[in-house]
Write a protein that binds this DNA or RNA. Structure first.
Lengths: 203, 203
DNA sequence: GCTTGTGAAAGTCTTCACAGCG
DNA sequence: CGCTGTGAAGACTTTCACAAGC
């Protein structure tokens, strides 16, 4: 089974919608409705879902609960995962308390910064540490995901440290491409590039 | 000329790299090096660049300055653009002072929030206003881009307001898909989905 | 020799059309 | 009927290979 990036992206979106829907008591949802709320097409979604071996019901659509469970199992999204944030500036501290992460099964269990000064001033219920403890804490707490929120010039070093420490995936908010071994999963969140992409389409 | 999304994304990345390179005194850069620092391939990049009608020099590569200028002109990235942020919670306020935006030609000239309380407590040199002034301020200041950093449940309303007020592009940090007219440029920044996409690839 | 520019081939993804089914 | 599931067609992207140029 080799799942394309596009499929992963769409299914992850669907998973998020199903998660949110969990609180309501909607029982079935059609590929059409899912497509609408996730910004794609019904046939793509049906292909994606069936390519994972998950099936729906003719004339009714998909059962919200069991689709979520099935997709979650296939993509290991049901499991809770621990993450840490490196770089506790404005953005990093905002991310520390970003509730959506917790709601969606990502538990931020540590923050790191190289400024002791900053560490002392931060108000959060999450434990924060100096950078030098990255390896120790990641190991001790079983952290699988690292979130990088340091300035661009330190991003590569931090990434190397995180990988050394055993992290399996990295979400990078620094506006640079990081070089990462192929076995480590990696996503960029480059705000400025997103704005550029918008601007490039204007006029 | 109809430029694909993929091309836009790559070229925007290249533009960012060229921008950063501007400070150094490197004069020429090869498609290979650009590909490496932007995480793509040299032949894709050469195709992209030449599809925009921009050319390099055999054996030397591209002139950093003139490539930047040429790409900037083709994609209207040389122009400075005004932007505003709606939603001044942790994330919104972090974005208000995100220096990278200013460096890259995006000027944040206003912040909006519906809580007067919040508006009073915010420390920033950027002007902040209550939501009800969105239309007036966008019009008066000539703001072209709107950045949404409100909770998911208000994102669509805010988007509608921004579009009503004449904004031409929207960057959305709320974790929902927003429905937007086709003539408005739009990008999502969904942190949780990014983490999900990483998690889905683990194991 | 080294790098661009590009046609042609290969590969991937999306769209369509429609059978199947409750 | 209204929905899923899917083969086949079509559209788009990437990759390759190599001519051209300094």
């Amino acid at each position: 089974m080799d799942i394309s990036n596009k499929t992963i992206e769409r299914i992850c979106r669907v998973f998020g919608v199903l998660n949110a829907l969990g609180k309501s008591n909607i029982e079935f949802i059609s590929s059409r409705d899912l497509a609408e709320t996730t910004g794609t097409t019904d046939y793509s979604l049906r292909k994606d879902i069936s390519s994972l071996g998950v099936t729906g019901y003719t004339r009714k659509g998909y059962n919200v609960g069991s689709l979520k469970e099935a997709l979650g199992n296939k993509l290991a999204l049901n499991k809770r995962r621990k993450a840490c944030i490196v770089g506790l500036g404005r953005l990093g501290t905002a991310l520390l308390d970003y509730e959506k992460f917790q709601e969606d099964g990502f538990e931020i269990v540590a923050g790191f910064d190289n400024s002791v000064n900053k560490l002392e001033r931060i108000k959060t219920h999450i434990e924060v540490f100096a950078d030098i403890y990255i390896r120790e804490i990641i190991d001790k707490k079983g952290i699988e995901l690292g979130i990088i929120a340091v300035p661009a010039e330190h991003a590569q070093d931090v990434a190397d440290d995180l990988i050394d420490a055993g992290v399996k995936g990295i979400l990078n908010f620094a506006p640079v491409k990081i070089i990462i071994p192929a076995n480590i999963m990696y996503q960029d969140m480059d705000f400025t590039n997103a704005l550029r992409m918008i601007a490039a389409r204007l006029d």
